[in-house]
Simulated scan of single mutants.
Amino acid sequence: MNDVLRSQIVEAIIDFPPDLAGNIPAVMADLLKRFPAATENDVFACFEEAIEGLRRRADAGLAEAAALDRLAPLFDGMPEGMTLGECALAKAKNGDPLALEYLQWEKQQAGGIQ
């Protein structure tokens, strides 16, 4: 199996509908139909790589959730619809340490307020 086909199958496994989680026969049947050039062995070989991809996705999601949770206080007391950057700018004017920290991070990592 070539790398392009392997990558396509891995992504298909990762993006499979959650309602079919654990239903390996249904997943296999769908993947073999969608990728007729692949054998059952090819598809099975992609499952381990897909598991690692799902772990990376889950880790990234957890890290993002933790960051959002940490930054949530910047929205407290601010008008609805303000962006994170707008909230941080408004709160930084009053010396809010989290706002100042966020704005410093923006300046260093993202090249300024987005």
Rank of each mutant, 00 (worst) to 15 (best):
A21N: 10
M82N: 06
R56F: 02
S7P: 11
A110F: 09
V43M: 09
N2D: 15
K107P: 08
A88M: 01
C46D: 04
T39A: 04
A58I: 12
A66W: 06
A72R: 13
L100K: 07
A37R: 15
A38F: 10
L5D: 13
K107D: 15
P79I: 02
N41L: 09
L84D: 10
V4N: 11
Q108W: 03
A58L: 12
Q108V: 09
D30P: 07
P97V: 09
Q114L: 09
E11I: 11
F44D: 08
A37K: 15
V27H: 08
M78Q: 15
L5N: 09
A65W: 06
D69T: 06
L71C: 07
L54K: 13
K91S: 00
T39P: 05
D15Y: 03
P17D: 14
Y102S: 03
A45K: 06
K91G: 00
L103A: 10
D19S: 10
D59Y: 09
G85E: 03
L5I: 10
A110C: 06
E52A: 09
D59P: 08
E80G: 09
I13T: 03
P18Q: 10
D69G: 11
K33H: 13
A67T: 12
V4Y: 06
F35A: 01
F35V: 00
L71E: 12
A37M: 11
A50E: 04
L32I: 13
A63R: 15
R70T: 12
I9C: 07
C46A: 11
L100Q: 04
T83Y: 03
S7E: 15
F47N: 01
I51G: 12
I113N: 04
G111I: 05
K107R: 15
V4M: 10
I13P: 03
D3E: 14
A50T: 05
E64W: 13
D15K: 10
G22F: 06
A65V: 02
K93M: 02
P36R: 02
Q109I: 02
E64K: 13
E106A: 14
E52V: 07
N94L: 11
L5F: 03
A66S: 10
A38K: 08
S7R: 14
D42E: 04
A63Y: 14
L31E: 01
D19V: 14
I51C: 07
A66V: 04
M78E: 14
M78W: 11
R70L: 10
A58F: 11
P79N: 01
E101I: 01
D19N: 12
A29F: 07
D76W: 13
L98G: 06
E52C: 02
P36T: 01
E80Y: 04
V43I: 15
L54A: 05
K33T: 15
Q114N: 06
G85H: 01
F47Y: 10
A58Y: 12
S7L: 11
K93G: 00
N23Y: 08
E101P: 07
E11W: 11
M1N: 06
E11Q: 15
K93V: 00
I113D: 00
L20N: 13
R56E: 13
I113Q: 02
A63E: 14
P97T: 05
P73Y: 08
C87H: 01
Y102K: 01
M78L: 14
A21I: 05
E40A: 11
G81H: 01
E40P: 08
K33F: 13
D96T: 01
P36K: 04
